[in-house]
């Protein structure tokens, strides 16, 4: 092939700075969205477990809506449409405070929360009913049985899907570039259009994504092993 690789024109001080700030925004977006998503997911899973009809129904609607619409469309909706529906003062506040980042974070968090709450729910359903019975037969009441016996097992059972959704969340932050968040994919394209060294810069960016993904997979593996209930 006649192509000559030239990484030196991509890895100048300026572009390295761009890449670092891209990684920083990607990680911030991941961490912020993860925390919001986890909290919402727990609330949704608990609401669903109450068996209170309207709550169950509301959670089901939330989950289905967020799982059956492309994340990009959700992000675009939050960015273009949602501010129109907000009071003027909120809109001003958003514009003054980096609205792209905040809205992308909310959109990604809401979508991930839907998936995570399903992971938690299937964890709860996978705990055999006999475990609950055994707990009750000792004289533990409902709450004690849930908190000592059922929920700890459910959380362990939902670790693998939770890790998977965390990885997807990290990868999905790249979608935020569509509304101009300066994360890693966005910065990569900036450097590309500055230097025209397309292959080099995309190789570097892909490498960065892979390293971060592998770290998430590796940590996820450790957590899975730590909580595997001694089956291995």
């Amino acid at each position: 092939m006649g192509y000559e690789f030239d990484f030196s024109s991509v890895l100048t001080d300026q572009y390295i700075d761009w890449l670092i700030s891209g990684v920083r925004i990607t990680l911030l977006l991941t961490a912020g969205a993860w925390i919001i998503a986890f909290v919402i997911a727990v609330v949704l899973a608990v609401l669903r477990a109450t068996n209170f009809r309207p709550a169950v129904w509301l959670v089901a609607v939330f989950v289905e809506v967020h799982q059956n619409i492309p994340l990009l469309v959700q992000v675009l909706f939050w960015y273009f449409a949602m501010p129109e529906l907000l009071p003027e003062a909120w809109r001003d506040w958003l514009v003054r405070n980096n609205s792209e980042f905040i809205l992308a974070m909310i959109a990604i968090a809401m979508c991930t929360a839907a998936y995570m709450s399903e992971a938690l729910r299937s964890g709860l359903r996978a705990v055999p009913v006999t475990q609950y019975e055994a707990g009750r037969s000792f004289g533990f009441n409902y709450l004690q049985t849930m908190s000592y016996i059922v929920v700890p097992q459910a959380l362990r059972l939902s670790v693998p899907p939770m890790v998977n959704h965390s990885l997807l969340l990290f990868k999905n932050t790249s979608i935020a570039m569509a509304i101009g968040v300066h994360e890693l994919t966005y910065q990569t394209r900036q450097i590309d259009s500055d230097t025209f060294r397309t292959f080099e810069v995309f190789l570097v960016a892909t490498g960065l994504y892979l390293v971060l993904s592998f770290i998430i997979m590796f940590v996820g593996n450790l957590i899975e092993r730590r909580f595997s209930m001694g089956t291995r």
């Binding site: 990885l167 990868k171 999905n172 932050t173 790249s174 979608i175 570039m177 994919t185 990569t188 394209r189 995309f202 960016a205 892909t206 994504y209 892979l210 993904s213 592998f214 997979m217």
Partner: peptide, 12 residues
């Protein structure tokens, strides 16, 4: 592939 965002795959 599992470690790459789909957007990156699209650009490639």
């Amino acid at each position: 592939v599992r470690g790459m965002p789909f957007l990156m795959v699209i650009f490639w």
